Amino acid sequence: MTKRAFITGITGQDGSYLTELLLAKGYEVHGLVRRASTLNRSRIDHIQDSNLHLHYGDLTDGVSLVNLIRDIVPHEVYNLGAQSHVKVSFEVPEYTADADATGTLRLLEAIRAAKIDCRFYQASTSEMFGATPPPQDETTVFYPRSPYGAAKLYSHWVTVNYREAYDLFAVSGILFNHESPRRGESFVTRKITLGVAAIKLGLTDTLTLGNLDAIRDWGFAKEYVEGMWRMLQHDTPQDYVLATGIGTTVREFCEYSFAHAGLNWEDHVAYDKGYERPTEVDALIGDPSKAKSVLGWEAQTHAKGLAELMVDSDIELLRTHGSARY
């Protein structure tokens, strides 16, 4: 039997890597795409596979979700779609709640209404921990510090509720920061590596950043989607933290990135208070022990190696195309 998977957020970083993984495993993959005046499918344009099918719809439109779940009858649903930029969530809090929180509820209701045997993955986030000191694991108290974190916390708990109330195989993957060359350029890691590439190639001389002291647990997105898939293959639905277990400051990520290009970060990085959030999350460092012991999943790429592979990719990208694709 060919398994069918439905992915929201298929055109994003995680969605593109997950699509490649599932197609390689023989899945028929269906993806949710928002209609826009310009196409934004650059992360999946390279995938030419007859088992990949894209459908117009939106997490803010419950009717589209009901119709798609009914027609596709997926065996697995991966809810990766979201307004995922933390600072932007302060500027568009209502939309963030509608897409990230209520959107998950709409999708769960579509699955329940269809009465299908389906396994559901919710993309939770370390931002739900917010102000709670590290290390953070599946039992750590949540304390979100942004509209994004609060919306994701609703999604997390409503997923738990549907698992317990309706016996749905529903899990939340609490993923700590995971990056790649496919990361959007407004996210700090990609902003850094693109900046390094531009400076190395003589296109600019300065990179402007906000809080350099924030500590994050950065891993490689391509490895994390394997963890998502493993969660849905387990016999029982459980929630898991995926992380490297290692904290790195934004300053250290800068050091790794600039050093890899033969540059001194202090010669090029400028500070702008405008990039700081209204409420900051000081430190997020995950404890992935459960994922390792139960799923056999362990991060292989840590911050330094991640910075280096992203810098190499962005130097080649700018040298070849002159601009970022994502």
Rank of each mutant, 00 (worst) to 15 (best):
T204P: 10
D71A: 11
Y78R: 04
Y256N: 06
F120L: 13
G103V: 07
R277D: 06
R34Q: 09
P93V: 06
L59F: 05
Y78F: 12
A5F: 06
L54C: 02
S323M: 05
L108R: 09
L22C: 13
Q238V: 01
S172Y: 13
E255M: 06
R163Y: 08
E76R: 14
H55N: 06
A283K: 01
V86E: 01
E255I: 05
G184E: 07
T244V: 01
G81Y: 01
L21D: 11
T208F: 03
V73S: 09
T125W: 11
G322M: 02
I315P: 00
A283W: 00
L22N: 13
G210A: 04
V250K: 00
P135N: 08
A97V: 10
V158C: 06
T125N: 07
R112K: 15
K152M: 12
A170V: 10
H46L: 01
S37L: 12
G103W: 06
L212Y: 04
E185A: 13
L108M: 12
F90Q: 02
Y56R: 03
A5H: 05
N40G: 11
D14M: 15
R119Y: 10
Y275D: 00
Y95T: 13
M310Y: 01
V294K: 07
F129L: 12
C254V: 06
T19P: 13
V86K: 00
R277T: 04
V160Y: 09
D235F: 03
N79Q: 13
P278G: 02
S323L: 04
V160L: 13
Y256H: 09
A131C: 08
Y56M: 02
R70S: 14
L263C: 07
H55E: 03
D49A: 05
D282R: 15
Y162W: 09
G305A: 02
L22E: 08
Y240D: 07
L23D: 08
F6I: 09
Y27R: 14
R112N: 08
Y78E: 01
M128Q: 15
G57D: 04
Y166Q: 11
S289H: 08
L22G: 13
K25G: 08
W229N: 12
H55R: 04
S37N: 12
L68K: 03
I69V: 15
L194R: 05
K273R: 08
L39I: 12
L168V: 11
I246R: 14
V63Q: 14
E316R: 13
H46I: 01
D58I: 05
V171H: 06
H85Y: 10
V141H: 13
G12K: 06
R277F: 09
